[in-house]
């Protein structure tokens, strides 16, 4: 079970990244949605629903791993800390955005912009750090136990 969940981690994050970028109407503009099988990337509602569903799956995985990590008292790598911090910020800003999207919930314009822009900024930073970790061989979040 744990191995299956571990295997889901990266694909779910990639899906969140793609559907996150898809919140901006760029895939249709730049012909990506014209590629057979990717037409859904040009459908704003579908991209939005998948982003929500992928976020729910990701948060399930994160809660699972955090519970196990706490009980195992695992040591986090330095790049792991950076990525975990950015993911935590993405989760917080994402939840605020979801609350804002409920009926009868309104935030002030500066708060809405702050949430939208920081969510976007943290996602960009996470992408950079994740790519750097991958390319430099510092992929693990946790130190391997001896």
């Amino acid at each position: 079970m744990t191995n299956l969940l571990l295997k889901l981690w990266t694909p779910v994050l990639v899906l969140l990244g793609i559907t996150g970028m898809g919140q901006m109407p760029i895939f249709k503009r730049y012909y990506v949605a014209d590629i057979p099988g990717l037409g859904w990337l040009g459908e704003p509602y579908i991209v939005h629903w998948i982003h929500y569903a992928a976020a729910a799956l990701f948060i399930f995985l994160a809660a699972w791993f955090i519970t196990i990590w706490i009980t195992e008292r695992g040591k986090v790598t330095s790049t792991g800390w950076i990525r975990i911090t950015l993911l935590a910020l993405l989760i917080v800003t994402g939840y605020v955005r979801v609350i804002k999207n409920l009926p009868d919930v309104h935030f002030s314009p500066p708060v809405i912009m702050l949430i939208d822009w920081t969510h976007l900024f943290f996602a960009f930073l996470f992408g950079v750090v994740a790519l750097w970790s991958l390319l430099t061989g510092k992929r693990p979040y946790l130190r391997v136990r001896e």
């Binding site: 079970m1 744990t2 509602y45 939005h48 629903w49 929500y52 569903a53 976020a55 729910a56 799956l57 948060i59 399930f60 995985l61 994160a62 809660a63 699972w64 791993f65 955090i66 519970t67 196990i68 009980t71 939840y95 979801v98 999207n101 409920l102 009926p103």
Partner: peptide, 26 residues
Amino acid sequence: MANEETLTSALIAAPLAGFAAGVIKV
């Protein structure tokens, strides 16, 4: 926005379900 409103329930349940599944595993 009906689907988003439904999916919000999944987003609320997700951390609780993940935590519960983690505890069961431990």
